[in-house]
């Protein structure tokens, strides 16, 4: 499980960073050395803990909402081509409008605090779930579809017994992208609605505390890695019960 080359690289980066900062090659006001970033955690550990947990909760909630609605929407659109043609452009529209522009609107609708943050997280991560799952449901081998049609399968049987299992890897890919986007949406929401690591970044910006910004980024990266790891474990478990992912190297 341990990625040794990656760990070695991280250690090298940290050491080089400290070294070049100490020699004055890196301006510490712009690139605070690792020990300063670490010290910023020690200054107010409870604040960091609360902020991390709040961001994590909002990200998880937003991701679960986008997962539920994305999967439901994909199911509805695969069953109706007119609905798909009507609603897919709308979904694309939601994807293209920057969340940082929508976030103030969300504050008006949901007020300051967690609901806005969760809404921002869900909106940003909705489209990758919908698009990837829909693609997975649509892209099935022609011969397998013919086999089902030859045996008189109904549209519902084709959806549940063929399309849905075939979409496993596609959904996994989409969720991997959605996790990162959920975090982006959460932070964007926290910029305007307050709370979490987003608000720490925002206040650190005004105080010119670059070390706190880096510390926040580090925790956000950690959150993303934990999310991806948990996602992989869940899909591996499903694959162990039913080998839906046998076409992928990652699951063999």
């Amino acid at each position: 499980m341990t990625n040794r080359p990656f760990l070695i690289l991280c250690v090298l980066i940290i050491i080089s960073w400290e070294f070049f900062s100490a020699l004055g090659f890196l301006p510490t006001s712009l690139f605070p050395p690792p020990h300063e970033v670490f010290n910023s955690f020690l200054e107010t550990p409870l604040e960091w803990q609360d902020a991390f947990l709040q961001t994590a909760k909002a990200t998880l909630a937003g991701h679960l909402i986008s997962l539920s609605f994305g999967i439901l929407a994909a199911f509805i659109l695969i069953l109706s081509t007119p609905l798909k043609n009507a609603f897919l452009p709308l979904a694309i529209f939601f994807q293209t409008v920057p969340i940082i522009a929508i976030a103030p609107l969300l504050v008006i609708y949901f007020g300051f605090g967690l609901p806005t943050v969760i809404a921002a997280s869900a909106i940003v991560s909705f489209f990758p779930v919908l698009a990837s799952f829909l693609l997975g449901l649509e892209n099935i081998e022609k011969e397998k579809l013919e086999l089902f049609q030859l045996y008189g399968a109904s549209k519902w049987q084709i959806l549940i017994k063929l399309r849905l299992p075939s979409a496993f890897l596609s959904l996994y890919s989409g969720l991997k992208v959605a996790i990162g986007l959920s975090i982006i949406g959460t932070v964007a929401g926290e910029f305007v609605a307050g709370g979490g690591l987003g608000s720490i970044i925002d206040s650190a910006r005004t105080q010119q505390r670059v070390d706190r910004v880096f510390a926040s980024l580090l925790l956000l990266a950690l959150l993303g890695l934990v999310g991806l790891y948990l996602l992989k474990m869940i899909f591996l478990l499903i694959h162990k019960i039913r080998p839906y992912g046998s076409y992928s190297e990652e699951f063999r």
């Binding site: 011969e143 397998k144 030859l150 399968a153 017994k161 299992p165 496993f168």
Partner: peptide
């Protein structure tokens, strides 16, 4: 009542052999 055998077996990878063979009955 007809059956079709393709050049590729087109078995479903998430079903074991029994479940793959049972597919034609299941769909009916």
């Amino acid at each position: 009542k007809q059956g079709f055998i393709f050049q590729e077996s087109h078995l479903l990878n998430w079903r074991n052999t029994f479940e793959n063979v049972n597919l034609s009955l299941e769909l009916k």
